[in-house]
């Protein structure tokens, strides 16, 4: 499943994922945003994988925020915009 969200005043955030047994799996976030350090991208994917597909936007964003902690730099992207991209992927027709 695939979802895209252009963060207002930010960059494009893309989510590609699958749902298996009601949980998010194989989550891959991508886009033309900026992250410091670059290894944070993998942490975002890990934070989201395994969450219930019924999680709401705040729960998705909180999982990303908790995994990244305060020292990851985000420019043009945010936990909230990642959550929207994931929700759009979940709503996308199969």
């Amino acid at each position: 499943m695939h979802g895209e969200y252009k963060m207002p005043g930010g960059k494009l955030v893309v989510a590609d994922l699958e749902v298996s047994n009601g949980n998010l799996s194989r989550v891959r976030i991508s886009g033309d945003f900026f992250l410091e350090p670059d290894t944070a991208l993998t942490l975002i994917d890990v934070a989201l994988s395994g969450l219930p597909a019924t999680a709401d936007g705040e729960e998705l964003a909180a999982a990303v925020r908790a995994m990244l902690g305060p020292h990851v730099g985000m420019y043009g992207v945010s936990p909230e915009s990642i959550a929207v991209a994931v929700q759009r992927a979940l709503e996308a027709p199969p």
């Binding site: 893309v14 590609d16 891959r28 991508s30 886009g31 033309d32 900026f34 992250l35 670059d38």
Partner: peptide
Amino acid sequence: IGRFQSLRN
């Protein structure tokens, strides 16, 4: 392409 972009997309 940028560091965080999907090659396929």
